[in-house]
Design a protein around this nucleic acid. Structure first.
Lengths: 192, 192
DNA sequence: GATTGATCTTGACAAATGTCAAGAAATTTT
DNA sequence: AAAATTTCTTGACATTTGTCAAGATCAATC
């Protein structure tokens, strides 16, 4: 399972074998069956989670019991909870597996240690955080500017592979639109 | 003007006088009158901008000419455009002054240099990026989950000082709601 | 302090989206 | 293969939100 993570890193930065050995020595691995939780709201989560295989989702359940999907995390994506990680607070989010998955976990402290001792890893983290900010920004733009139809179009254009892998109601939840509206929007688009 | 920035940094990290001297030596300063642009869509912007005084907004103008506010930046906030900065692309956003403002600018290269030579500054950048991600996440949550009324309540609860400083139609634009709806929502809330 | 421009409110109506419910279709489990 | 579960679609209707237009209020400028 570590191979996948190593390949991911090799694609971004150059590390020595020793670096990799160290990272591997502190990495934890976890297999999740479909629908199994990686994190349940209410508990503290102090890991950086990297998806080697499968598909996770990060979502919030409101008082009415409605799920609001904050993030989709397929292979080669990171997930977790910055809030819980940084402030040691109980998480407000659930993370579970949409498909059977294999996850690599790095404890906050180990991750920080790696970041501080390997400059190129630090740059990579920085870069990743900036890219993440860009992605979030684009999502905000879509949220505040587009119609339901446009949101759906934007989503499948940006994430064709994700939209094939998850049920429509999850995309609806991610976009902040009802599943019925999304279903209508889609058949309407297909007609043209 | 540098004093303000120095105070801001002193509050977060400990640097030597030499560090500050170096930072000051590369910093640029800019005064903006109300409505003046710091950045116009179409041009490349390779600065980190820190607001010492005043109030900026970062927004997108769509094909229909509608403004969509991506960020409010009052004193002690950073603004800029990650996309343009990192990829050297023409910006899609406008940034202008909502009030007369004083801005400190750090060129991308200088900023990177500071980050790489001063470890605590690097940690600070990292920390700031993570906090930024949290803020964006919360905004996404509000966008996909709340009604117009709840969005407004959430906004004034989170940003009481901002909501007093900007016209209602800008808050509406930030929230992705029409100004009329927001006006109604507000009088309706006041009645109760 | 008169004028101008910006901001805010309100009404009437239109359009978009949500809700509820039921059944069809597809997928998974047994 | 049958049963169970999940997903998707569709209709009818309610609700929310947007649009357009007009006037009122407020603030800035000369």
């Amino acid at each position: 399972m570590f191979d996948i993570f190593r390949k991911y890193l090799e694609d971004k930065i150059t590390l020595t074998d020793m670096d990799y050995e160290f990272i591997e020595s502190v990495a934890l691995f976890k297999k999740l069956r479909k629908r199994q939780y990686l994190l349940q709201a209410g508990s503290v989560f102090r890991f950086h989670a990297f998806v080697c295989k499968g598909f996770l989702r990060n979502y919030y359940v409101d008082e009415k019991g409605q799920e609001h999907i904050m993030q989709f995390a397929p292979e080669n994506y990171w997930t977790g909870d910055f809030g819980s990680m940084n402030y040691g607070l109980p998480s407000k989010y659930d993370i579970d597996a949409v498909e059977d998955s294999e996850i690599l976990l790095l404890q906050k402290e180990d991750f920080e240690m790696i970041r501080k001792t390997i400059p190129s890893f630090n740059d990579f983290v920085n870069e990743t955080l900036k890219k993440n900010a860009l992605v979030l920004q684009e999502r905000i733009y879509a949220n505040i500017s587009l119609t339901a139809k446009e949101k759906y179009g934007d989503f499948i254009a940006k994430y064709p592979t994700i939209s094939n892998r998850v049920p429509l109601h999850m995309i609806a939840s991610y976009l902040g639109v009802s599943a019925e509206t999304l279903s209508r929007v889609r058949t309407q688009s297909a007609k043209k």
